[in-house]
Design a protein around this nucleic acid. Structure first.
Lengths: 233, 233
DNA sequence: CGGCGAGTTGAACGTAATCAATTGTCGTGG
DNA sequence: CCACGACAATTGATTACGTTCAACTCGCCG
């Protein structure tokens, strides 16, 4: 791999646990890979052969039933970690929602490296704990929130995650952004159909909480009201 | 704390990563605590002050909205780990579903101990990854499965988790067991109301997939059909 | 025997799904 | 540049599943 030291996610990804020497060793095991929108990195049920850090772009983790129903169980952004280290098959597939770039490792080489680097494992543990908390918050959404509450929550979540680029000087969230997914995928994240997603977006627009200049762009016009709606008061 | 070496979850909890000396050191930091049904160990939103291992009994992790809707986001069984190590406030409350016994530590002392014991952190990481996978499977259930599929999945899940007592010689799942929760709590795990839970249980009974000798006891009469239903074919 | 809480069953309702038609957007080639 | 086709998104009408509200049953304990 080229140059970890100048990597844009150097200070946010789990690599931040490593000193320059260790980083050099890790970099020998991995390589950068470009992934184009729609491409699949890992298939659901396959043995977990690779892990990766996201450098650029957005990817989804998806689960599907035998009869074709689909649920997106995670969305990963730059600096996030992908994959299931330490054995096991992957219980979900990984797909690129946008063109993306990842820093990819074979699982076995990553596992070996991690065994000798407790600090890296510590970072990975913290990240996994955070991801678990996020998954549990989403369980509340899927189990108990109404359609409009779900949409409001998703828009705020994307705003926050796209905003947190780690550059501390920049705003922690964005009031205007591009959706990294289409309506069907929004439905798959929220446990709703495409039609319901569309209708609820229209309602939020009519209520002047958001604007939709084009189908991929969202402008948050009244964050407070959107927040109130999302928190299911 | 009394005697870790003779602890019933000694070989299944994260403690299994430790040698007898280390175990002795850890045991000085914790203590056994009995928790009776309904009692709350941790409140949602409070700073995370304690972590624990479950020795006996079943506990729930719950999230609730301002207007009183509730979602159970996790159910923990003997040998499972409870709590949010490494800072942060707990995003969920922890309640005993049955009378239980836990091995409890202050978060700060556990954190310190874990820092010096990479093997323990490794166990904890594996456990957290497993828990994350389970949470994601549950997201599929909450987002995409029908009421009857949800009930079938829950019954099989409880059967499996109660069966996996670690005693490898014993059956990996049980065909008869006591539900560790009431109808309301089943609803809160599944994102359903109490009435829907009741109706669907009646249907499974009428379809002869299960029997319900009394309101807490479940007998699985046709595991295969229940499995088919649960997997949403 | 009476009263209470948990659970079941029934009837009416409402939210989101489904089915269907239309509009809008983008990329391509004439 | 515009016409066209393909696909994404919106909008409308109807249906269905699970919720809500309400009555009733069961088991348990005083």
């Amino acid at each position: 791999m080229s140059d970890c030291m100048s990597c844009v996610v150097r200070n946010r990804a789990i690599c931040s646990a490593l000193n320059p020497d260790e980083l050099g060793a890790l970099s020998k095991l991995g390589r950068k890979q470009v992934v184009s929108r729609g491409q699949t990195l890992v298939w659901e049920g396959d043995e977990s052969l690779v892990v990766a850090n996201v450098i650029r772009g957005v990817l989804k983790l998806g689960v599907s039933t035998a009869d074709g129903r689909e649920q997106i169980v995670g969305v990963v952004f730059p600096s996030d970690f992908i994959g299931r280290p330490f054995g096991k098959e992957s219980p979900y597939s990984v797909n690129a929602l946008t063109d993306a770039e990842v820093c990819i490792f074979t699982r076995s080489s990553f596992d070996d490296f991690a065994k000798d680097h407790p600090d890296l494992q510590h970072k990975l543990l913290q990240r996994t704990l955070d991801e678990l908390d996020r998954a549990r918050q989403w369980m509340m959404l899927l189990g108990r929130k109404t359609a409009s509450e779900r949409i409001a929550t998703l828009l705020l979540e994307i705003s926050n995650r796209l905003g947190n680029t780690g550059c501390s000087s920049i705003a922690p969230f964005l009031d205007q952004f591009e959706l990294p997914m289409d309506r069907q995928q929004m439905g798959d994240v929220l446990g709703l159909t495409i039609e319901t997603v569309s209708r609820q977006l229209t309602k939020l627009k009519e209520a002047e909480m958001i604007a939709l200049p084009d189908r991929r762009t969202v402008v948050i016009k009244d964050r407070q009201r959107l927040q109130n709606l999302a928190e299911a008061a």
